[in-house]
């Protein structure tokens, strides 16, 4: 009988000897896990393969490998279908917003975690609202607030909205993180004549690095993949210029297919969007899994 081991790789068949029943059980485990792995991987591989085909091949031999890989699909997706512009728009928005999210959240979290002051509990509760209220309730007023401020359909507008909606969860995560850091370090630095700002930027912020990395990954994925907010707030997408981010642009391309046009270009667009995520994930999978499952505590 195989043990339920707490280390997935350690013991198992080797320790118990290859009994016939155990071998059948093991084979069954691999069969089931393997089937799901194929179910996950195969559609992506198929999409990538299809992105190298011509439209004729896609329609008349959807299963065959491309006769000759067509790289032009990617060029068309990047330029004519404007994936390149959407990509750059997304970068222009997510990079500053990620930086501001981490900076502002760590400042607020530090103060809320380390100091007693009037109104601390009230502020903490206020930040809870952003975590539990559904985004859809805020959507209509948010549209008009950004419009009133002249920030509708602008990069700074979406950046500020991303930051504002990322604060709650990031602050709560970092409050718990700052609470684990020893108080004595700050007190000692104060005696040595350091200012409160020095203590934050030189002592505690560097110590908070692991927490910041986790929240950085969590927010990067959340903001990079965000769809509802840009869909509501970014409007311009005409011949001259576009403010769309990747998720909007990809949906726009797919919606256009209903009027029949460039399937191979669309497959190439999906591949272009998928591949960087895949590469980044393969390199940082450990940290990404930790960062994202940290978000599950959110419930």
């Amino acid at each position: 009988m195989a043990t339920v081991s707490t280390q997935p790789t350690a013991h198992s068949a080797v320790a118990h000897g290859p009994r016939p029943l155990a071998i059948v059980g093991k084979a069954l485990i691999y069969l089931i896990l393997g089937a799901w792995a194929i179910l996950v991987i195969f559609p992506m591989v198929w999409a990538i393969m299809t992105s190298f085909k011509t439209d004729q091949e896609i329609f008349f031999s959807p299963w065959a490998l491309p006769a000759k890989p067509i790289f032009d699909n990617f060029v068309r997706a990047w330029t004519t279908a404007r994936i390149g512009e959407y990509f750059i728009n997304t970068l222009i928005i997510v990079l500053p917003s990620l930086f501001l999210t981490l900076l502002l959240s760590s400042m607020a979290a530090y103060v809320l975690a380390r100091f007693e002051f009037r109104g601390r509990n009230l502020i903490t509760y206020l930040f809870l609202i952003g975590m539990i209220f559904p985004l859809f309730l805020a959507l209509v007023p948010l549209y008009f607030v950004t419009q009133k401020l002249g920030l509708l359909d602008t990069y700074p507008g979406l950046i500020l909205v991303y930051v504002a909606f990322s604060l709650s969860f990031t602050i709560f995560f970092l409050i718990n993180f700052f609470k684990t850091l020893p108080k004595e370090l700050g007190e000692a630095a104060l005696i040595d004549g350091a200012s409160q700002y020095d203590i934050f930027f030189r002592v505690y912020l560097p110590l908070a690095r692991p927490g910041l990395i986790t929240m950085g990954i969590f927010n990067f994925l959340g903001q990079w993949n965000q769809y509802i907010l840009p869909n509501t707030l970014m409007i311009t997408n005409d011949d001259k210029s576009t403010h769309y981010v990747l998720s909007q642009g990809l949906y726009y391309l797919q919606a256009k297919q209903f009027y029949g046009s460039d399937w191979s270009g669309l497959f190439a667009a999906v591949t272009i969007v998928m591949i960087p995520t895949l590469v980044v994930y393969l390199i940082f999978n450990d940290r990404i899994e930790k960062g994202m499952t940290a978000g599950a505590v959110k419930g």
Partner: peptide, 16 residues
Amino acid sequence: PLALYTLFVLLPYFSA
């Protein structure tokens, strides 16, 4: 942080 949060999160929820 509070100013941003008030403007883009609390105010919309409140107006809603």
